[in-house]
Amino acid sequence: MVVRLQPHDFDISAEIDQLVAGRTDIGAVVTFAGLVRDMAKGAPILDMTLEHYPGMCEAELERIEAEARSRWELQGSLILHRYGRLTPGERIVLVVTLSPHRHAAFEAAEFLMDYLKTRAPFWKKETAADGTGHWVDAREIDDAAMARWG
């Protein structure tokens, strides 16, 4: 079970290889990768800066991961999140879940992302085409997505 925060990019395939290296008991690997979109509320953005709360961010992601482990049969997982300045098209986040069976891996990956979005202390600030900065508003749909897990 791995939680990692870093400013630099990651290689999805290398991350998966590292998680499954030397193991023959894993039946399913589900990955979710989040990317920076070039539009926000219908207007183009130049870039985005991700602020985070060092220390709490890792601790909260570990708590979320522990919760996922208590709900599904997971053989491993990775939550990797970038911070700092990112431009459209770049990768922001990677979630990987490993399980003997696909349903557990799919569900746990979705759970991790839903919880991450509403509980991990990250904040996005976007730069509009005119150079002004705007903090992204939290979306009620994300709260609803988390709430459905009970």
Partner: peptide
């Protein structure tokens, strides 16, 4: 957050070392 754990406004602050205030989160 008190000592890096989410809390409610009703949580007592006695004994807290670090209290953080921030907007709703927008990661992912």
């Amino acid at each position: 957050a008190i000592d890096q754990m989410h809390v409610q406004p009703t949580t007592p602050i006695a004994g807290a070392r670090e209290i953080a205030f921030f907007p709703p989160m927008t990661g992912g």
